[in-house]
Amino acid sequence: MNKRPFLALFVTPAVLAALASAAALAAILQYAFRAYVPGSLDPGGFSLSNFEALLRPLYAQVFVQTVWICLLTAFITLVVAYPLAFALVRTRNVALKSFLLITAVTPLFLGEVVRTYSWIIVLGNTGFINSILMGLGLVERPVQMMFTTFGVVVALVHVTLPVMVIMLAAALSHIDVDYEKAATSLGAGPVKAFLTVTLPLSMPGVVAGVSTAFAWTFSAFATPQMIGGGRVSMISTLVYQLGFASFNFPFAAALSITGIALTFAVLAMAKQAIRPLEKIGAH
C-alpha cells in the first residue's frame, strides 16, 4: 500500500510557489551586489559599494530610528493588547466575546491605507483631537502630531494590535484556568495569582507576539510614509524613495537585504529567549 498517496499532487504546486518567492529574493540578493548606473534602470557590474553606503551616518541613522520605532511599537502594543486578549479569552459572555474578537480582528483586514488615513483625520492639525483640545480651550495652537515619531508610533500600535491580540489570546487560551484557581486556593490574591501563574505561563505567547509585532512594524510602509510625511524615515520609506524617486534599485535591494538580516536576527534572539520559557508552558 502506498503510504503517501497524493504526495506529488499536493506538494508540486507548493514547490512552484516557493520557487517564485525564492526567485524574487534571489533577484534582490543579486541586485544588492551590483553597481548603480545613474539614469539607467539596468544595474552595472559586481560591486560592494551599496553596503559601504549603508555605513554613512544618514542611512545608519535611519536604521537606528527604524529599530527604535519597532521596539517602541512592539512593547506599547504588548501592553495595550494583553488586557484585551485576557478579557477575550476569559469572558464567558458569548456576545461580548464575539464583539471583542471582531473588534480586535477587523483592523487586521482593513489594510494599511484605510487605517492610516483614519489616523490622519484623528491626529491632523485640524483633526479630531486638535479640534477637541482647541474647542475646550486647552491649547491655543494645534498640537503637532502629524509628521512626528509619536504620531507614527500611535498609528503603528493600532496597525500591530490585532496580530498581537491573536497571538496572546492563543497562548492564554491554552492555560488552564485551574492553575489560577489552585494559586488562589493556596492563598494568593487574584493579582498575585495572575503575576505568579498566568503571566509566566503566557510568556511564550508574549515573546512570539513581540517578535511578530517587530517584524510587522518593520514591514509597515503606508503608516510611516503617510503620517511621517518624509520627516520620520524608516527603512521601508527609504527603499521606496530610492526605488521610485531615484531608480537606485541596487541600493534599495541592499537596504532590503540588510533589513531581512536584521529581522531574522531579532526573531532568532526571540526564539532563544523563548526556549527556556517553553519548558514552563509545557504541560
Partner: peptide
C-alpha cells in the same frame, strides 16, 4: 518527506519578510 521543513519555511517567510522587500523582489525579477 525530504525538504518539508525548508519548503514550509520558504512558504511562511512572507509573514516576517517585509512586504516592501517582496514587492521590490518581484519588481526586479
Amino acid at each position: 518527506f525530504r525538504g518539508k521543513r525548508a519548503l514550509e519555511a520558504m512558504l511562511t517567510s512572507p509573514l516576517v519578510i517585509p512586504h516592501f522587500t517582496i514587492g521590490l523582489g518581484f519588481l526586479i525579477l
